[in-house]
Design a protein around this nucleic acid. Structure first.
Lengths: 136, 136
DNA sequence: GGGCCCTTTAGACGCTGTCTAAATCTCGAC
DNA sequence: GTCGAGATTTAGACAGCGTCTAAAGGGCCC
């Protein structure tokens, strides 16, 4: 469960509005990695008059305020991820679907030893096919 | 140094043409990670009549034939990489520039242990700032 | 030269995302 | 409750990147 959505917005200095709540209700709860167009389509279902510009502005605002992350993993596919903790991503070659890989499922070493760079964040991006077995 | 470019194309079943050679000459030799538009701009310098469609078609052809890789690391920025060996990438937050990180500079473990996925390839994507010191 | 197929071209088109100017809403001050 | 300033939303125009299309061009074998 999560703190209620209006409270989350206020805590991040975002004035709640019907439109922002509708966007937040979808995008903060989904397990998917939706594109802006997908968010627009979904939110239009509950708030038919909302405009594309508002959805884009709202998503960008959420990213700036740090309640959403933006991922660019595949061509022409900017996608939003409400899961803020570090984790890795697996991209299904066949469908383009993005699946989360828990941080501890992989072990990345020597990042601190890199010279010449000051790493703010990193993740492993894996590509391939899903097999029958479940994620570890 | 590399085998001569017409030979590389033929070896990959690509009929050489003036346009394809001009694109290959630039994109297979560069150390950068150029976008299609950048390739178009560069090649237009030596072959002014070349059309955008040809550059895009040629780059896509090279990717399909496996002499180039396509990277999507940052928003609105599909980029091509002639370096085929596995390596990681560092994205400079300030400039958006992409720098290669040698495969052995990092150590990623437990990829084989992942359940439910059949990994074809993976890489670490790092983001941050460049610091004074050089890459290791 | 003639014919065939591959390649290239210019421009139209489509999609994603941003911008603009006007309309609407919110909320505190009165 | 009313007012007004500032924030928010809206529709549509616009911009950039990439693809598609139909026609033109080129290479090569007969």
């Amino acid at each position: 469960m999560q703190a209620d959505v209006p409270e989350i917005l206020r805590r991040h200095g975002i004035q709640p509005s019907a439109q922002r709540l509708a966007v937040a209700d979808y995008v903060l709860r989904t397990e998917d990695h939706p594109s802006a167009e997908r968010v627009f389509a979904k939110v239009s279902g509950t708030l038919p008059m909302i405009s594309r510009a508002t959805v884009y502005n709202t998503l960008n605002l959420f990213v700036r305020r740090g309640i959403l992350r933006q991922l660019v993993l595949a061509e022409g596919n900017v996608v939003f991820d409400p899961k803020l903790e570090p984790h890795h991503h697996f991209v299904d070659d066949a469908t383009g679907e993005i699946h989360d890989i828990p941080w501890d499922a992989l072990d990345v070493r020597k990042v601190e030893a890199l010279r010449g760079v000051d790493v703010r964040e990193y993740q492993v991006v894996l590509r391939g096919r899903r097999s029958g077995r479940r994620h570890s």
